[in-house]
Design a protein around this nucleic acid. Structure first.
Lengths: 113, 113
DNA sequence: CAATCATATGCCTATATCGGCATGCGTCAA
DNA sequence: TTGACGCATGCCGATATAGGCATATGATTG
């Protein structure tokens, strides 16, 4: 009983910073593993492992091109995350009022104490 | 050497489904711990622990109200996540033409930088 | 002060990653 | 076929995290 596996939940998959970096790089187009690894300053096995996770959650796909394996972005899986966070947009925009009243409460409490 | 701690990285904090549920519930307003626990079908210690994580990353705040401790939403921390995923919007929405030109822009920018 | 309600924590176990290193596997060139 | 290159995996160690249960802590009431 822990959180859903990184390989099955996009939220969890992108919780790892290096995987986010990989996704960002892939916006510029397909890349072979070694190139990604080098640009991100990580070893090849490490890059491969992260790419595997991303592939299993469907955020990237790959195709064989000669000796290389090109990884490409499939960002559709990020849409749910964008939409979920979007559901809170009102709250971070509107936070002036809420924050303000919260601050007032704090001041009040302190003065009373 | 693992991913950033759940207590310091919003991406990681919301990687846990139950914490996302808590945040959703809090959109309806402040709630005491026990009420949250009950509505989500989890034990009180469990709810408290999740709330602690959320508090440490700044997604919720709490104030004492008599014997209870009311937790409230502070969604500002979700904005970066929304924006980050938003950076991929063109890749799941737009036509391939526009996507193409966007990619060209990225390449250009990268070369200039 | 004692009893009680509402929460927060500590301790322990099971499980999940992450990263390194060595190595297996597939492809291409000679 | 052999050797080199590119990448995927297996295995191991270290660490993080989730959840349970019992218990400590803080506030309120009698």
């Amino acid at each position: 009983m822990a959180r859903a596996a990184t390989t099955s939940d996009v939220f969890n998959a992108i919780a790892e910073p290096q995987r986010r970096e990989i996704l960002v790089l892939l916006r510029a187009g397909e890349r072979p593993v070694t190139e990604l690894a080098e640009e991100l300053g990580m070893t090849q096995p490490r890059a491969s492992k992260h790419l595997r996770v991303l592939r299993e959650v469907g955020l990237v796909r790959n195709r064989t091109a000669g000796k290389q394996r090109l990884y490409g972005l499939d960002a559709r899986g990020l849409k749910p995350v964008h939409e979920w966070t979007g559901g809170f947009e009102l709250f971070w925009n509107e936070s002036f009022d809420r924050l303000d009243s919260y601050v007032q409460e704090l001041k009040q409490t302190k003065q009373e104490g």
